[in-house]
Design a protein around this nucleic acid. Structure first.
Lengths: 213, 213
DNA sequence: CCTACCGATCGGTAGG
DNA sequence: CCTACCGATCGGTAGG
């Protein structure tokens, strides 16, 4: 291809500002699927079309990159969840929408992220990221529950010796884990959508009415 | 301590048969907490009081040890779950007991195990271990559900367009994830027990009756 | 953004 | 079960 001599610049004239975003998105995909330890800085760099030391021009070290990836993902999720709360008002609609959203966007393991946060990043970063997680993930669910209680759609958590926050944790955990063992990703696109719809409805149904006869 | 000269045998006369068990238990603790990649064979060996190459006398390689650890854990769990099913017959008693059991014995991340199984071991071992997991983990729950349906204690899963197996997955996932973010391990023993009891009751309550008003 | 290279650590082997 | 050691790979740096 390149026959322009020794000084040919690589990377096809890509805007250097874009490189940062490419790294973030590439690293996000790899970290979420394989975990922090299992992904090497060389893998990330290769998929971005740069050399490994070039990564260190954009990020101080691997951990800094990881934290940036998490922050990017959390901001994105926060925007989307609050969008759902704006667009829908009924509790069951909101729960269905949020469940579906999570299933579509978090095929990979969210618990992977939790594990890495606990073991691979510094306590200071842990706290920062934890706060972002509460703000972007937990609070929208808590809001949904509190609204549901106010509107008389669901029980007051206190009636069953619980709290809004504890219920929010429960919902998040159920959603996150429900699709983990079934490899939805390997299905054709239309069956995939049908499967997600079915699972989301199942969760909402059970969570609202229970399984007792 | 030892002043018997150059040929003193280390390891305090420990039965060499026991070493195998010590390795299994030590590796189980480490693998389940930190994950396959994050635990080195040297860490395991050090905690067992042997050198790293000595590990390879008992296990062909790291992956073989990991599979042995998983098999050991699954056999143990199968025995305990079936014991609960023998001892209790009512659905809500069984669910409470199993939930409590899981919380006590799986503080660590079961999803860690799932992740490692998917990414770190060979397809043949994956299949072996998957079958053991179905037999030891999933089947007892499926049995509990089917009995509950037969006794008229819970809905037939078909009524809500589901199956016993899917419901079993759901229960397992809920149980496994409910205590993940709260660090129960750091509490004093009596509060720990109270917390587990409370969470188990909450799960059973919601799972049976739902949260709808 | 590259080439060249570092020390540390990894899983695993040789030989006793 | 030990000492000694291997090649491979890791995160990160120097210098341009």
């Amino acid at each position: 291809m390149s026959k322009m001599g020794k000084d040919f610049k690589r990377n096809d004239e890509i805007n250097p500002k874009e490189t940062y975003q490419i790294i973030i998105k590439t690293a996000e995909r790899l970290f979420m699927e394989y975990g922090y330890r299992a992904v090497s800085t060389r893998q990330i760099a290769d998929l971005c079309g740069i050399t490994q030391p070039a990564l260190y021009h954009h990020f101080k070290n691997k951990q800094t990159l990881y934290v940036a990836v998490i922050e990017h993902a959390l901001h994105h999720t926060e925007k989307d969840l609050n969008g759902i709360l704006t667009q829908f008002t009924a509790f069951d609609d909101r729960l269905t929408q949020i469940t579906t959203y999570m299933m579509v966007h978090f095929e990979m393991d969210m618990s992977q992220m939790f594990h890495d946060m606990q073991h691979e990043i510094s306590p200071e970063d842990q706290q920062r990221v934890h706060q972002l997680w509460v703000k972007g993930f937990l609070m929208p669910i808590v809001t949904m529950i509190n609204d549901g209680v106010s509107n008389g759609e669901i029980k007051n958590p206190e009636e069953i010796d619980s709290t809004s926050t504890e219920m929010a944790f429960l919902i998040l955990n159920i959603i996150k884990s429900i699709l983990q063992p079934s490899n939805i990703g390997s299905l054709p696109k239309n069956e995939q959508t049908a499967m997600i719809k079915h699972k989301a409805n199942l969760i909402v149904e059970i969570f609202l009415k229970g399984i007792s006869r």
